Simulated assay, not measured.
Amino acid sequence: MSRRCDLLDTGPMSGNTVSHSKIHTRRRFEVNLCNVTLLSDSLGQKFKVRIAAKTLRTVDTKGGLDAFLLGTKNHKLTEKAKRIKKAVLKSRAEIEAA
């Protein structure tokens, strides 16, 4: 399983470890992934996702999974997140039409 965020596709970065003697050695900075269950208010469903801690803080700040997905552009989201966003939009359209 690759170490990537399920919502924003955030992956590992590369850089250097710099020792006291200034020797540069290549290394990977892994993403801090968390296994969480997020609730969609519009759909009434829970989604198990593996997301970065930074993304989880953003979801909390935006006010939940639905608000996060609706406020994020499609080119930043993964395919899984796009499917959830499409279902949320459809659910909201049905609620407004009724």
Rank of each mutant, 00 (worst) to 15 (best):
N32G: 00
A81S: 04
T55D: 10
M1Q: 08
C5R: 00
M1L: 01
E94M: 10
H24P: 01
L77P: 01
D9I: 03
K82L: 13
R3K: 11
A52S: 12
C5P: 02
E79F: 05
K46M: 07
V49C: 04
R26D: 03
R26I: 00
G64W: 02
K76G: 03
T17L: 14
S40M: 12
D66T: 08
L77W: 06
K76T: 07
G11F: 04
T37N: 10
R4G: 03
K80Q: 11
L89C: 13
L33D: 03
L7N: 04
M13N: 15
L69A: 08
T61C: 11
E30A: 14
L77T: 04
H20G: 09
A98L: 15
L65S: 04
K86S: 15
E79Y: 07
R27F: 07
C34F: 13
T55N: 13
L89E: 14
K90F: 11
G15I: 01
K73W: 06
A97E: 09
E94G: 06
R26K: 05
I84P: 04
T10S: 13
E96V: 12
E30D: 14
G64F: 00
H20D: 09
R26S: 03
L33R: 09
N32I: 00
S14T: 06
S42A: 15
L38P: 00
D60I: 00
G64V: 01
D60R: 08
R27S: 09
M1P: 03
L33H: 06
L8F: 07
I84N: 07
R28S: 11
S40C: 10
K85W: 07
V36T: 05
I84L: 05
A97H: 02
V49I: 06
E30F: 12
V31M: 06
T78E: 00
A67R: 10
V31K: 04
I95H: 09
S42R: 11
D66C: 06
R57W: 00
I95V: 14
K85T: 04
K73E: 15
H20N: 03
A87E: 10
R3D: 08
A52K: 02
D60L: 05
K80A: 12
N35S: 15
L33V: 08
K90C: 05
A53T: 06
A52I: 01
T25R: 15
L8D: 06
K80N: 00
K80C: 01
V18Y: 12
